[in-house]
Design a binder for these strands. Structure first.
Lengths: 109, 109
DNA sequence: CAACTAAATGAGTATATGTTCATATATATA
DNA sequence: TATATATATGAACATATACTCATTTAGTTG
């Protein structure tokens, strides 16, 4: 599946998925859910974001299919629904680390 | 390297990298370069974007370390500098395909 | 039913960013 | 040196989106 074969609408879908991940607070929420499902209040207190803001980000992530939700009484529990998330983040992280340590090394000379 | 261990500044870096990929025209440029390096004029004619626009996107991609540039006379040739790009895109693409065919299947019942 | 709680949402604002037009810069060539 | 060409960039504008405040919705419990 090569990118150059993708029609424009498909590219927009791919871009949209990357865009969802392009927001640090959303990454924080994802990171918080790595340990397992949590309800909104828990995520609010852990991230120290406003409740409204957390709620909106969770909506974005859920609509993208990255998170799932489960209602239980008054609480709504969110959880990672797309395990490929971790592979994605790890790829980016390790690449960034490589780049940054290369720059750091260049400084020392 | 787990995401929940990353400090906020690192998360911003990761998010920034995703954001660079979150623009369809930039993905088009990347796709165009999959076949090998090309100069700006070539990229302009292939993508049918304006020269100014292509130039700006190439700048964004280069500053992010995803592309490299090489000057040769009047021309500037751009090329993929980060091969992990393809793994990233393929991960997203295959995930999207799976999601979409699941939805398509759900329609048939 | 009334009061309470957790989560979602409408409306408004601020900021970031994609795009274009016009122009500047750099390099080549007559 | 003058002219032409490829690419980059300043300025302006339009759009998208992150955020907050206030309120609503859904569900629980007295």
């Amino acid at each position: 599946m090569k990118a150059h074969k993708l029609p424009p609408e498909a590219l927009e879908l791919v871009a949209a998925r990357f865009r969802v991940l392009g927001e640090p607070n959303r990454l924080r929420l994802i990171a918080a859910l790595e340990q397992g499902e949590k309800n909104v209040s828990k995520l609010v207190s852990e991230t120290e974001l406003t409740q409204a803001n957390v709620s909106r980000h969770l909506q974005t992530l859920t609509e993208a299919g990255l998170l799932g939700r489960r209602k239980e009484g008054l609480n709504v529990y969110y959880f990672i629904a797309d395990e490929s998330l971790f592979k994605l983040c790890d790829l980016v992280c390790s690449r960034l680390q490589k780049d940054l340590s290369a720059k750091a090394a260049a400084f020392k000379r």
